[in-house]
């Protein structure tokens, strides 16, 4: 554990909490892509199946459980509790165009052709593009509430901080994972346009 990794995890946790609080406090999920949230739930489910097979640390297990619970909690709020506020009409990104290539790629490029390893690889690939329906929705409506912008900024920062963590680990521990690094860079690059607007305009869309 190094400072970049810790800040990355905190940023990730913060993003999830911001989103849950926004929906809970406003009793509305307007402006949030349910499709991105479903993709994130698939990502965490596929990746954290190792909760049953390997133990790393209490921190690791607890964070995994928190991410899973928060993700399914968000889906419950969006699709059941505050369903009426869900903005169907603007959430139209075809997620099969993300899922199918990720399935194929994870079958072709992985560290080991075993079920858990392929699911882990699939989750890494899918996570890198899971935000696209949300970014598409923001660009389609041409605006995002400031709280949604803070959510996106925290969520984008998380993988950017992980890149610093991977650079640190490469030099300090000679540890690296090509799949995670390449997908993490792709994921961060997708946020660049948003980062630019967030920093220069303060609030995206205004």
């Amino acid at each position: 554990m190094n400072v970049f990794r810790l800040l990355g995890d905190i940023s990730h946790l913060l993003a999830i909490i911001i989103l849950l609080l926004k929906i809970w406090k406003t009793r509305s999920c307007a402006g949030i892509s349910g499709r991105s949230q479903v993709l994130f739930a698939v990502v965490y489910t596929a990746r954290y199946l190792d909760l049953f097979t390997s133990y790393i640390s209490a921190y690791n297990s607890i964070m995994k459980l928190v991410f899973l619970a928060a993700s399914y909690g968000t889906i419950y709020l969006m699709f059941i509790k505050f369903k009426a506020s869900y903005d169907h009409n603007h959430d139209t990104f075809r997620i099969e165009f993300l899922i199918l290539p990720c399935v194929l790629l994870s079958l072709l490029i992985n560290h080991e052709f075993s079920p858990l390893e392929i699911l882990w690889t699939f989750s890494i690939y899918l996570e890198s593009v899971a935000i696209l329906p949300q970014l598409f929705m923001v660009s389609k409506t041409g605006e995002a509430e400031s709280i949604t912008s803070h959510y996106l900024f925290a969520l984008g920062s998380y993988r950017a901080l992980y890149i610093l963590n991977w650079i640190y680990r490469y030099y300090a521990e000679s540890h690296y994972d090509v799949i995670a690094i390449v997908a993490g860079i792709v994921q961060t690059v997708l946020y660049c346009d948003f980062f630019y607007l967030y920093i220069t305009k303060g609030i995206y869309g205004q």
């Binding site: 990794r5 790393i56 964070m63 992985n110 560290h111 690296y176 994972d177 799949i179």
Partner: peptide, 10 residues
């Protein structure tokens, strides 16, 4: 791609 990840990250 020979290096198997340790999966200690989230």
């Amino acid at each position: 791609l020979n290096m198997k990840s340790e999966k200690d990250e989230l």
